[in-house]
Computed example of a mutant assay.
Amino acid sequence: MTLIGETGGAPAGGVNLADIIKDATDASFMADVVEASKTTPVIVDFWATWCGPCRQLGPALEKAVAAAKGAVKLVKVDIDKNPAYAGQLRVQSIPAVFAFVDGRPVDGFMGALPDSQVKQFVDRLAKQGGGGSPIDQLLDMARESLELGDPGGAAQAYAQVLQAEPQNVKALGGLARLYQKSGDLERAREILEMAPEGAKDPDLDGVRAALALAAEAPSETAAFEQRIAADPDDHEARFELAKGLAAGGFMAEAVDHLLEIVARDRTWNDEAARKQLLTVFEAAGPMSEVAKQGRRKLSSILFS
């Protein structure tokens, strides 16, 4: 199953520094600052070439804004060449920094600050804007697509994230989960191998568990169903049937059979059914209805 569509010339989800850090003039101020801030918070740095503290503050601002990955923009204005808006904002000393949101100044400071305080200022503004970085927006888009039953749209959003950040754990986990659910276990395994060593993510862990189940599953289950029909206490047959069902994506049915084993003989084969249930819960997703209901039923059996 092909999940990722053609992206054409669409942005890859990365951030071009030229789009978020630029020089502005009095002529471009309305477009670069006032209008732009209606969609993304904009920081204006009023500076001059002769200003020593400006040369100290400028790189710190640029570094913090770049780290925000598009959640905030930076516009630099040389007041010697462009005095109009500095005058309107009553800039009396430089560096002078103003934060614009929705077309108006909402915060600011004068003079050079330590890098840590500059970062706090930028991060605070990013949260105030509420838009998040393009990467976060794409991840949100993927989640929304899944909620709307559009796995293709989710896959494309994840793919755009990975074009910008090839080792983004959330995107790798989400894409691997999509391939696993579609039955393309080989592609899911390839995505898992792209994850950084030691990366932890519920989707990554779930796909690993699903692949482990698939590796142990029998190719046919009819014989096990016949054995269970003849002897409901044939725990081995029920266990093998549950493995086959889980590998085929029938998680709820697999859980029911494993719970039946636990209910009949919870210590069978060194509690193999209970241990297998934990793997199935992880493969289905720890917050899935299968896992939630299965845990409740398991607790009811164990503590009854």
Rank of each mutant, 00 (worst) to 15 (best):
S28V: 05
R55M: 12
D123G: 01
S133R: 01
E6M: 07
A31G: 05
G131N: 06
A142N: 11
A71F: 10
D102C: 09
A99W: 09
A96L: 07
G132K: 06
I79C: 07
G131D: 00
G9T: 08
A99E: 07
T7P: 05
L139M: 07
E62P: 01
V34K: 06
A36P: 04
R104A: 15
A64T: 01
V118F: 12
D45A: 13
S93P: 11
L17Y: 05
T2R: 13
P59M: 04
M110I: 14
G103T: 11
P114L: 08
T39P: 00
V106Q: 02
A142E: 12
D32H: 10
A66G: 03
S116L: 13
K76M: 03
P105T: 04
Q88Y: 06
G108Q: 04
D115N: 10
E62I: 00
V97A: 04
I20P: 01
T39K: 07
A68E: 15
G8F: 10
F100C: 06
K69Y: 06
V34R: 03
L74N: 03
G9L: 06
V118A: 07
T40R: 14
Q120L: 10
I43K: 00
K38D: 01
E62D: 12
K76D: 01
T7M: 12
G5N: 07
Q137T: 14
G8N: 13
A112G: 13
A31D: 13
D19S: 14
A48K: 02
G8M: 06
D107E: 13
I43W: 00
F98H: 09
W47V: 04
L74K: 00
L113Q: 15
D26I: 11
V118H: 06
G14L: 05
P83H: 10
D26Q: 13
M30K: 12
D19P: 13
C51K: 02
K38W: 01
V106R: 03
G103D: 09
